[in-house]
Structures are given as C-alpha cells and as structure tokens.
Design a protein around this nucleic acid. Structure first.
Lengths: 119, 119
DNA sequence: GGTATTCTTCGCTACTTGCCGAAGTAACGG
DNA sequence: CCGTTACTTCGGCAAGTAGCGAAGAATACC
C-alpha cells in the first residue's frame, strides 16, 4: 500500500505528469526539463526525485549531467501500468501537445548553451 | 488534463483507495464506510464526494441513506482504467484484506442499528 | 407539526506540499 | 588547486488538505 501510495502521490501533480509524458521520447537531462517547464532547477530536481522514488523514472549520472527516463522492464508492475495509463490518457492533451512542440525546440539546442542560460 | 488531475488527486489518499476497494463487492451506504474506517461521518462524506467528482464513484439517494458504488460503463475511460489499475494492484494488500474481513462483519449488521452507534 | 436520523456543509486546526533562492556536492577545465 | 558548471539539499513562505465537531438540509416516523 505504501509503495502504491508513492505512485499515486507522484502522479498528483501536473508538472510530474508532464515530465512523464515528456520522457516518452527518450531520456532527458535536468536542464532540458528546466527549460521546458520554466521552473527553478531545484523545483524540477525535487519533482524528478519523487518520480524516481515512486519507481516511475530511472536516473543516470554522466559527468555533470543527470539523465532521466521512464522506468524500464525491471520496474514494479504497478509503476509500469501507471505509465501506460497516463501516457494513453494524456497523449492528445493540449498541454502535452504544447510540451512536445517546445521540447522539439529545446532538443535542437546544445546542452552547454542551454545550461548557461539559467544560472 | 484537469479532469485527469482530479482522478490522480482522488487516488492520492489511503482512505479513498480503501473506499474504492471496499466498493468492489457492490454499493455501500455512508454509515457502513464510517464503521469500516472508524472516521467521522463528515470526513468520509468528503472523501466519497472527491471520488464522485473525479468520476470514480456513482452516488444514489434512497430515503435517508446515500449509497455509493464504483462508476459504471458511462464513466470516462480514464476513470474506468484507474479503477481497474488500483483494484488489480491492491487486491492482495494487507490493509485491503483487513478491510474485507471487517466489511463482512459490518454487512451482517442491520443498517438502523449501525447508524445509531455513531450519533 | 415535531422529533429523530442520515448525510452534507462549514469553520477550524494541524500537517503537507509546491515554489523559490541560497548554500552545498560533485565533476570538468584551466 | 581554483573557478565554473550541473545538480541536489536546505530553509522559509504561501497554498492546499485531512481530520474533527457543530450547524444545516432532507427524509422518515410519531
């Protein structure tokens, strides 16, 4: 019950739902999510940490960068079903579609340039 | 997105999850849920109202009693999938199994006797 | 009508959460 | 080393939420 509540808690926030949808296309680094959402890095870091604790997102460190992606096969079934549920239900949502568009622009930028902007 | 967030918000509480699981067996009246959870009637009423607003639970008034049950076929697909997801994942949970046991005792009692206890 | 009963709504309190900026880590580059 | 960069953690503030009891609304029973 506790681990399941961690999942529902993680899903109970628009930014975290948008994060999961944004990660459909593959892994992203924190600064890309910061750019996408226009939030403070500390805020986004907290959000992805909650998603990670719930088992919905895997994290990977490479040098200074932290990459996040949707949980893979080894994730608990409840988490994987949650991911399928929300990606199916929100696939055509206006906010999500807007994020896709903006994410395409963000992905075109070099990581170094991107990160210099917000500090 | 807003209606979907109403669902995830509704799921983000242990009592509401337990309510949904308890309603698997059919509709229940508020005083039965009050007895099951040991919470104040006002608190339980608020919880089922949140579930109802999210489209997860249908309500029915009959005389002085209010009956609640899981949303039926006319419910939005996102809600129905949510119900399937949580009932599948929590079916064997310790808290849920305990609720089942207690609910069996509660169901044996007459509604009139039950309600007199808490007022 | 008048009373009792069931549920809902309304204040209220205590706790949680999202947000930010500041400070702290860890890693690359000179 | 030492500064810069990318991220995380901490402290604080505003907003939201679960809990209760009291009051209100609606229905049944005398």
């Amino acid at each position: 019950m506790r681990s399941f509540l961690a999942i529902t808690k993680a899903l109970n926030d628009q930014t975290r739902l948008r994060t999961l949808l944004a990660l459909r296309g593959g892994e992203l680094c924190l600064c890309q999510l910061v750019e996408l959402f226009g939030l403070a890095p500390s805020t986004v870091s907290k959000h992805v940490n909650i998603l990670h604790e719930a088992g919905l997102v895997d994290r990977r460190k490479e040098g200074r960068w932290a990459y996040f992606k949707l949980a893979g096969r080894e994730a608990p079934p409840a988490a994987r079903r949650a991911i399928r549920w929300i990606t199916d239900c929100l696939a055509g949502d206006a906010v999500v579609v807007g994020d896709e568009t903006k994410l395409n622009c963000v992905m075109e930028q070099d990581l170094d340039e991107l990160c210099e902007c917000y500090s």
